[in-house]
Design a protein around this nucleic acid. Structure first.
Lengths: 233, 233
DNA sequence: TGTGACAAATAAGTCTGACTTTTTGTTCCC
DNA sequence: GGGAACAAAAAGTCAGACTTATTTGTCACA
């Protein structure tokens, strides 16, 4: 997905971005544009463009007479989808997956409540279709098919909420769901209770029952938290 | 705040960014790098760097033989602090303020609950100090002083949650609070009930009462929603 | 000895011009 | 009418020279 190698500067970023987000250059490290250009065997103009992009993500700061210094993690634009992808691909993956799951647990129930009020007839139909697809692929190790419908389901919820900020988290949630299926090796079929909950959420949204949609979605996200052992006893 | 005019390309962005996010160039519009460079009276290299930044925000897409085309709003990186600032400064301000307030209402209660579990003694002290500052400035038209402590309060909550994604919303929430005080002309002193709620949240966090902290914060955010008439009867 | 001004070094920033590459649209021929 | 060759357009790349801000170090003076 996304856009692989859109120009030389993009190829540089594909290497430099993951390296920085993985912590290979500790905060405060100083890079020189000229040296980087030599290392990557590109012209300075290309390297400058790459640095500009990293700068706009608040991964680095460029100052005259000093160089390009790496910023501490807490200043990064951690909502940038590109940064999220880089971190999910590197050593940060577990922590990233946990913080994103917590984020999900805060957002999705509210989004579902709003979706119950604002979803169009078409969106309701889509939702039902996704839920049925999940049911159909819930047994017999059809994990990939299940995942596709699961991602689509949550994307529709977020979009149907009518809130642009929620809607833009669709990719992030999809990434988290995919990560769970692919990385946390899943041999078993999905939890039947979770499948049922999705069907019920679709129902609640269709009926415009915001409170129930929110509550049911909260149960789904609590399940996601439990899977990662994020929970206070 | 932020970094005003960090180089020529930054000055270009200060004009071009707001123009695009304000919708002055409708989605699908095609810009030519050379023309832009002439308009802004900068070299092509500088304009190219500016375009790269806009591209990394998914505001535009650059393609050979075509030019730089403006993307539809739903593809923008709306969590980029820079994009948020641009939109808050333009015609989009009301809608942006509304969607951000809804986002707040989803995030902050959960963050407060986590803060009750994870806040350090120092953070608890900061929180109490902020709450007391709010009380002290709650009467007699000391709106600026009140705002400072209000912003600090919510920033501490988000940071103390221990979740990096929540923490990074501190700037956004501060922006929303400032927007409410400055733009939605406030002549009156803040609602005493809201002030009390902040004090109680500080208490709950100090006592480690996650459920109460979450519930009280929810009341605060519901109040924020009501102010903007975001509510279903 | 400390301090302030001045000078040198350094790395980013800027500009220009030439060249390459990709994509698109047109035209011409079968 | 369809497909292949061709031409044009705009971004992409590179190299080199020059500018400017910032830091650091030095030296003289109080």
């Amino acid at each position: 997905m996304s856009t692989p190698g859109r120009g030389l500067h993009g190829q540089v970023l594909d290497t430099l971005g993951p390296a920085i987000t993985a912590g290979e250059y500790p905060p405060g490290s100083v890079l020189r544009t000229d040296e980087l250009a030599q290392q990557f065997e590109v012209s300075r103009s290309v390297m400058r463009e790459a640095v500009r992009v990293l700068e706009s993500m608040h991964l680095v700061e460029s100052r005259r007479r000093v160089g390009v210094t790496v910023r501490p993690k807490y200043e990064w634009n951690v909502y940038d989808p590109q940064v999220i992808r880089w971190r999910l691909a590197g050593a940060d993956r577990p922590q990233q997956l946990r913080s994103l799951t917590v984020l999900r647990s805060a957002i999705e129930p509210v989004a579902a409540g709003l979706a119950a009020k604002h979803a169009t007839a078409e969106q309701c139909a889509e939702l039902t279709e996704c839920a049925l697809g999940m049911v159909a692929h819930s047994r017999g190790h059809q994990l990939e098919g299940y995942l596709v419908h699961d991602m689509a389901f949550h994307r529709v919820i977020l979009t149907a909420s009518g809130n642009e900020m929620f809607a833009r988290l669709g990719d992030v949630v999809a990434e988290v769901l995919a990560g769970r299926t692919h990385h946390e090796v899943m041999f078993e079929d999905p939890d039947p209770a979770a499948v049922t909950l999705h069907v019920q959420v679709a129902e609640a949204v269709r009926e415009g029952d915001a409170v129930r949609a929110e509550e049911l979605t909260r149960e789904i996200t609590v399940g996601a938290l439990q899977e990662l052992d994020i929970l206070a006893p």
